[in-house]
Nucleic acid binder design. Structure first.
Lengths: 383, 383
DNA sequence: GTTAATAATGATGCACTCCTTCGTAAGTCA
DNA sequence: TGACTTACGAAGGAGTGCATCATTATTAAC
């Protein structure tokens, strides 16, 4: 009720225009009648709204559907190619970029390996290269891009500085948003990677149906994010979800159980170690199974805390280890059943390694929506 | 954006009416011009809105202000006495009732002691008596009451059953909402007591300015509640905030440190034991201070988990022990500073023992607002 | 006591948005 | 080719909000 406001007749038109845009973005091309039905407006009114939106460049006409009875209806769709969005995943070992249209449909993706100890300037240069190649792959230039949304490991400030980053030591203290703004002449937003992955999960993953979700970002690093009331919870200082910092949660070192298991061949690369243990556990190796048990024990402590505190509808296991959800979920469920009041639905993520960069695109879309739905914020020209 | 909808012209009027009601509820009597200024509408339009609201019985005129230059303006106010609200705090040792008008202004309060082992039927009878005497005290009858909002210890289901209650053993399994509905011929809502106290704190307490808050409900029982984005977070199964159930949080038995301190005289009643320890600690008794340290150690573990997870703007210490905030807050701050990324503002509640019953009234007001702001929900007749 | 200043009131006309209705147009099907 | 179906477009009407202006009630100053 805080934000509920009436106003002018033009405000009403604005609301109806936005509802129409929302309907068009949600579903593919729609006829006027279909739009009217969805928004609750009458057809003539809808016509006027759509005419206006076409004039503003937000909506365009598409060829009518074939083979329908009666006079073929004009069809309209959101003009998703008025501008483009770039998503970035700046991780310890990889930099990923994605190019998407205003609907968040991904048109191109690129990836470049880096190392956790890559110096800052070199890493920033790699980011620029990755984005440039992604734009080239999609046949666009940076001038076509409206928003760059970047996700990175670590605790970030609301303004987009890296407050603390254990995974990329040199990252700590960097004004990432500032540096990216120097690099890209458009709107830049920066967010924690786990929260972006959670967003992707809520937008296109396994929890599109739920509005209260605990997202576990598990892999070589442990992270978490919360979706509350349908929104990714950011926290007052943009530091929500950092339960790994609590010693009692036994989270920080939990992956060690999997990465230092005695059955791992000595020449295995660190990137594959945990995978080896998980695969062995799937095959029934008792030592690996014991390691998994210990890992899940630790994982469950922090997860229980989150579940007890938030009583979410769903817990999602995402991140690198989610590929082994078949091994991890049953014991995790078992632990949660014992410690929680109500066992939430426990699911595995269906998004792969692109979850963060996908979430970054979704974050950019949300940012655009926010601008769209907030009067007084100037929009990039759409025509 | 999910709930953002345009619509009809009547929808616009509805929005403006609700904005007007909101403005009138927030501030005392307002003139037409003041209302217009607040809502952004023009004076003539405001007039029409107010006329309609007067006709519907939501708004009434009050005598004009004296001693103003120019023609005195008519003043209008929300007709808070169109109906009444009852708040209930059903605790282990006390039942409290409050009667308030539709603005949430409390007109009468009553209290009746009970015991944790009071049988269910007897306790329900006590509830009925407490409410009856409260109504009598306020000069109203149950027919004047639109909503009864009840808070009680324990985990409740979304439907208002007691899922589990450690403090009142016989309470577990009771369909509290159902029994109260049999008792009172009006709308009945049931909520966890800590969440109600948090709501009171957000509405009239120390955190009116913050939208992300961790509320610690500390006393002989430990509870917690979260305010996220300005809303009290309830959880999918209405079981949010139950971090005390997590063994690692060391919360459940934390009050024992204060209640079983060796310096407490043997004939002290259990209700006063912790208070004795806290008072001794304030006076500098080393044994009491050590007990307080141990208590805060435990309290800080669960609090750290919540702060790390949610990154709230404020942590509020409420409940019975908040009277000793001067003793508890400094060491709690110290612990949190060490374990958290960003130390939130740590404050003491200013509401006393009536925090839950006050919060129940605020919950009833919120429920009424919800009905007001949700079309299609029939309202109690207001005229 | 009279007059000027101030601020609210009430009435009028206008602009905008949405709705209903109806005749017309453009397809499919028999 | 004609019947049927569906969409289009235009016209008229109702509801809502705004700007404007003459009127009214009160205070302040002379």
């Amino acid at each position: 009720m805080a934000t509920l406001r009436g106003g002018d007749l033009s405000r009403l038109r604005q609301l109806n225009s936005l509802t129409a845009i929302g309907a068009l973005r949600g579903a593919g091309p729609l006829t006027l009648s279909a739009l009217a039905k969805r928004t609750g407006l009458s057809r003539p009114s809808m016509k006027e709204v759509v005419d206006e939106l076409m004039q503003l460049g937000w909506v365009e006409e598409t060829p009518p559907a074939q083979g329908t009875i009666g006079r073929p209806a004009r069809r309209y769709r959101f003009r998703a190619s008025s501008g483009y969005l770039v998503g970035l995943d700046i991780g310890g070992h990889n930099i990923r970029a994605a190019l998407a249209n205003l609907n968040g449909e991904i048109l191109a993706e690129t990836r470049q390996p880096v190392r956790p100890d890559t110096p800052v300037e070199e890493r920033l240069a790699a980011i620029e290269r990755t984005v440039a190649s992604c734009l080239a792959l999609g046949g666009k230039t940076i001038a076509d891009v409206w928003i760059v949304a970047a996700g990175t490991i670590g605790v970030i400030t609301p303004e987009g500085r890296i407050h603390y980053c254990a995974a990329i030591p040199a990252w700590t203290g960097l004004d990432l948003a500032g540096r990216l703004r120097e690099m890209f002449p458009c709107d830049v937003v920066v967010e924690n990677d786990s929260r972006l992955a959670a967003r992707a999960e809520a937008q296109r993953g396994t929890v599109r149906d739920a509005s209260d979700v605990v997202f576990l970002h598990v892999g070589r690093r442990m992270g978490a994010a919360l979706i509350i009331g349908g929104n990714v919870h950011r926290g007052f200082g943009a530091a929500a979800g950092e339960i790994a910092m609590l010693p009692q949660a036994q989270w920080f070192d939990a992956p060690e159980h999997l990465q230092n298991c005695s059955i791992i061949p000595p020449d295995t690369s660190p990137a594959d170690a945990a995978g080896y243990t998980l695969a062995a556990a799937r095959a029934g190796d008792p030592v690996a199974l014991a390691a998994v048990e210990r890992y899940v024990d630790d994982l469950a402590v922090g997860t229980s805390a989150m579940v007890l505190l938030l009583d979410p509808q769903v817990v999602v296991l995402g991140g690198g280890f989610s590929r082994s959800a078949d091994v991890l979920l049953p014991p995790l469920r078992e632990r949660l059943r014992r410690s929680c009041i109500r066992l939430p639905d426990v699911r595995a993520s269906t998004l792969g390694d692109e979850c963060v960069v996908t979430g970054a695109i979704d974050y950019a879309v949300a940012h655009l929506d926010h601008q769209l739905f907030t009067p007084d914020v100037p929009l990039p020209t759409s025509r």
